[in-house]
């Protein structure tokens, strides 16, 4: 009986949290247009979440592509279809690995930065001080950061994909001497604009999800040192889980 009661409490808690996040999302969206009226703030945030994540995204993109090249070559070789490496690699990166891995990396680097920054502002009363100065922190702090995130994510995704494919090519063509012409032509004949759109759309959706979680956790962090730390951890965990769930849903829809 006790177990059931706990379960019910957890369910209720979960539903409440979902509702809270949804309402928060609504508030952020409401402030978004006004945030864009201060482009300097948004540019700053695109820099913080995007430009500063470039190194990690490009590095990981390269290595993911290279690993894909290695594994893919090994796999396809058993069927005598090595020239399909271009196709296989490109499709895997464009449709799945690109958006998902970028989202996870984004959550880890930019998401935690956002959450801890905002959480710290909460803990040191900066957000309250703003409210006292009759400045809405949603407009001034949260919305620009959210906007920066949703702009940066699709761009990062696309960069990851491009470098990933380069990585596949690096291993497949340079190392394993797969015929370059067939590598690219097979890829070209199998990958369409709609596949790329899929990847970009996923990037956008993941961007919204991860940015939202990051700013939500930061804004609602308990105003103590541990609270901020917890908020950062939760950001990564929840972003990762949500990204993968959304990935399944989106893939199912777009297939």
């Amino acid at each position: 009986m006790h177990f059931l009661r706990e379960l019910w409490d957890n369910v209720r808690e979960f539903v409440t949290t979902v509702g809270s996040v949804a309402l928060f999302f609504g508030r952020v969206l409401a402030q978004l247009p006004r945030a864009f009226l201060r482009p300097s703030l948004v540019v700053e945030q695109v820099h913080n979440t995007g430009a500063l994540s470039l190194v990690i995204i490009m590095t990981c993109g390269l290595f993911v592509g290279m690993v894909l090249g290695l594994t893919g070559y090994d796999l396809l070789q058993r069927f005598g279809s090595e020239e399909a490496l271009g196709t296989a690699g490109a499709l895997a990166v464009v449709k799945e690995l690109g958006p998902v891995v970028t989202a996870l990396l984004f959550a880890g680097r930019a998401g935690t930065a956002l959450a801890s920054e905002i959480g710290l502002m909460r803990a040191t009363d900066q957000l309250t001080a703003m409210e006292m100065m009759a400045v809405d922190p949603m407009r001034r702090v949260i919305a620009p950061r959210f906007a920066g995130g949703i702009i940066a994510m699709p761009l990062l995704t696309v960069i990851f994909i491009a470098i990933g494919i380069f990585g596949v090519q690096l291993v497949g063509v340079q190392q394993f001497k797969v015929d370059a012409a067939s590598f690219w032509s097979q890829m070209r004949s199998s990958v369409g604009l709609d596949d790329i759109m899929e990847g970009v759309i996923k990037g956008c959706v993941f961007g919204v999800a991860c940015s939202l979680i990051a700013v939500y956790e930061g804004y609602n962090a308990t105003p103590t040192a541990e609270g901020v730390g917890r908020a950062t951890t939760r950001t990564v965990v929840i972003s990762a889980v949500l990204t993968l769930i959304l990935d399944y849903i989106l893939t199912a829809i777009m297939l």
Binding site: A90, V94, P154, L155, L156, V158, I159, I161, A162, I163, I165, W184, M187, R188, S189, S190, V191, G192, L193, D195, I196, V200
Partner: peptide, 14 residues
Amino acid sequence: GFAALFFLVTQITN
């Protein structure tokens, strides 16, 4: 980002 997108669209698709 846009360069990457451009690259993908032109080089990778049919």
